[in-house]
């Protein structure tokens, strides 16, 4: 995971940033999501790098201002939030604990790594049944698809592999 080895100054920043969550899936922190790519501090100037999940992700602006507010509240006055595109974000970067949090929140976590049709079984986050049906390739946000469980009949969001 990004940011595991760092000095005390950046460790403090990572700790503060661990409270910043995805505005659309507030159960995930930016670290869980793999969106937070780098944090550094030089002569009091903080630089935070984030990467978009999807090119048109409308949450980027909110994430940026949430990062700035969080760090400003902790006394960091000079903060630059930079958007990096390369390497392109992948669901592979989502942490294990992030995946677990998603499931508990009612969203099925991504099951395989490539961006093909899911080959391994997607489980219903409510009853764990693998008897699920794709309703739509797109759900309530760009990063999700809509499924329905054939056992408990609950519709649910599936976090797509990218």
């Amino acid at each position: 995971m990004v940011g595991m080895n760092h000095n005390p100054a950046t460790a403090r920043l990572y700790e503060l940033l661990s409270t910043v969550v995805d505005p659309e899936i507030p159960v995930l922190t930016l670290q869980d999501l793999g969106v937070l790519r780098d944090v550094s501090i030089t002569d009091g100037e903080v630089k935070v790098s984030i990467t978009p999940t999807y090119a048109g992700c409308p949450a980027m602006e909110t994430m940026r201002s949430d990062i700035e507010k969080t760090l400003a509240a902790a006394g960091y006055e000079q903060v630059t939030v930079e958007q990096v595109l390369s390497p392109a974000w992948s669901t592979d970067w989502m942490t294990q604990s992030g995946r677990e949090k998603l499931r508990k929140y009612g969203i099925a976590p991504p099951v395989n790594t490539a961006c093909g049709r899911p080959t391994s079984q997607i489980e219903c986050p409510q009853c764990n049944s693998t008897g699920v049906k794709l309703i739509s390739e797109f759900g309530s946000t760009a990063c999700k698809a809509l499924y329905q469980c054939q056992e408990c009949r609950e519709p649910f969001d599936y976090f797509k592999c990218l």
Partner: peptide
């Protein structure tokens, strides 16, 4: 959603 991807690009 596809529209959003294109606008993002």
């Amino acid at each position: 959603n596809v529209s959003l991807d294109f606008i993002g690009r």
